[in-house]
Structures are given as C-alpha cells and as structure tokens.
C-alpha cells in the first residue's frame, strides 16, 4: 500500500504537480498495480545476478575527433524563450 505522504514525496521527486483529486486517484491506482507487482517480491532470487544489457557489447567507443554537432540556431529553435543565444528560465529560488 502507498499512503498520501509517499504519493506526495514521489510526485515531488518526479517534478509532477498533482492536485488533490489526482493524488487520491494516483494512490489508489498505484496501490492496485503494486499488488500485482508484489509477486516478484516473493520469488526466490538468491544468487541470481541482475540483467542490465541483454546483448553484451564491449568498449563501444568512437574515435575522439571533433565533428559538427547541432548548430546553435537548431538547438534554440524550439525553445520557449531565448535570450542572447541562451535558453531563458525563471528564477531558481
């Protein structure tokens, strides 16, 4: 079960502003989904290593040579606000 405090904590971590009604629905739905997911907490996994990559690759590196990246014009093209060739953001307090 997930309680209201956990929902608010996780929403803050995820940078999601939820209203009160959304918080309540989220608590109920996440609790419901976790009941199913909890099946994996009962499995015997002793000595089983985690999988992070299904196809093993080693040392995928490219030559360290300068090359053309995105132009400044392209990089800023879709931004909501641009000042002096930079992304503009509100205060950070």
């Amino acid at each position: 079960m997930i309680d209201d405090t956990t929902v608010r904590h996780v929403a803050r971590l995820a940078r999601l502003r939820l209203d009160d009604a959304e918080e309540q629905v989220m608590r109920e739905e996440l609790s419901g989904i976790l009941e199913h997911i909890d099946a994996i907490r009962a499995m015997d996994l002793d000595g089983v290593p985690p999988t992070t990559h299904v196809i093993e690759l080693e040392n995928v590196l490219r030559a360290d040579e300068p090359r053309q990246g995105l132009s400044q014009e392209d990089a800023l093209r879709e931004a909501r606000a641009v000042v002096d060739g930079s992304f503009e953001v509100p205060r950070m307090d």
């Binding site: 929403a11 940078r15 999601l16 502003r17 939820l18 959304e22 996440l30 509100p90 950070m92």
Partner: peptide, 26 residues
Amino acid sequence: ADNLLDQYEVTRGRLFGPEVKRRIML
C-alpha cells in the same frame, strides 16, 4: 511560473496525460 521548480512541476503536471504520470510515479 515565477520560479524554475514551479515551472517544471506545473508544466509536467499539466501536459503529461494520466497514464504517463502513472508510469513516471510508479
């Protein structure tokens, strides 16, 4: 929004749909 954190949270809260929010939360 007046500050950056509010802008992140309100933008994401408004513009993501319910299933996306559910999965981000999960």
